[in-house]
Design a protein around this nucleic acid. Structure first.
Lengths: 144, 144
DNA sequence: GATACTGGTTACCTCAAAGATACCGGGATA
DNA sequence: TATCCCGGTATCTTTGAGGTAACCAGTATC
């Protein structure tokens, strides 16, 4: 819990960019993984989620709080300090995420291979990035 | 395989409308479930997926075919006949879908309860429908 | 001749999620 | 006085999945 989050925790070049599995909205699963090791502060979570804007992080966390997946604790200090922590319910998503990762590990290569074999030119729709730029947009990095 | 698909296979009022899990795009998981029992024809699949337009079904099936999840077999008959069947890879998604359903069964009530308790008025964003109409739009029916 | 059937295709539109950018309050620190 | 820090807000723009509606080929049937 004390250790800082690895900025490379989610690899933007990771093949699971193409993974056909999504938990919650775009960032939810990654946030759950960020909080797996214990409570984290707002800007702490932003680090591995490179590119997430504060607006989007706020609204995702608010939705997760509303759904009982995380708790938000604001300390009346200065500068302000807010900590987010997984609830039991949020923690229950970890097994599901693990299942998704397991599927990915076993079957994603086959999917990617099929995609490449089927239409090398037209394969640039849907889950893969349209352009060949490595910019962290598109569907964004998924959990690996 | 011979039995027709149940039009009520996917309940539009099903609580998993709010389920935070998605496999592929909006319809992929439901199509996988439609094909679980064997090969099916285009218009056969449309029945339980009430409201899906041929355009969207076509593009979803094409994407699934490209990714090696289904095979498409067109018979040179008249009127035309086309059959879709799960591949081994597509079939491998069934365990993942089962995991998602299991999570739903165990934890979705708690999520819904938290959502209702937290902001009865503001609960109309994200995974729930914006309007209160029962129209089959929004995130659409998920698998139950 | 008109209609139906199957499995689509095409053009157009809508709407919500997400991103870009800028700004804020208020105490601590220089 | 000025700047930094933290945890956000406010506003605008983009984007792309998905929906609506119309049309198609080719045969068969009414």
């Amino acid at each position: 819990m004390a250790e800082p989050l690895d900025p490379r925790m989610f690899d933007p070049v990771c093949p699971s960019s193409a993974m056909p599995i999504q938990i919650g909205d775009k960032w939810t699963a990654m946030i759950v993984l960020c909080l797996e090791g214990g409570r984290r502060r707002f800007n702490e979570i932003r680090v591995p989620l490179r590119g997430i804007t504060p607006k989007v992080l706020t609204q995702t966390l608010r939705a997760m709080e509303r759904d009982g997946l995380v708790t938000r604790t604001a300390y009346d200090e200065n500068p302000p300090r807010v900590e987010y922590e997984l609830t039991e319910l949020g923690r229950s998503l970890l097994t599901l995420i693990a299942a998704a990762r397991a599927w990915s590990e076993h079957h994603l290569p086959a999917l990617l291979e099929a995609r490449e074999a089927h239409g090398p030119a037209s394969a640039s729709s849907r889950w893969s990035r349209g352009t060949e730029s490595g910019s962290p947009q598109g569907r964004g990095p998924s959990f690996r």
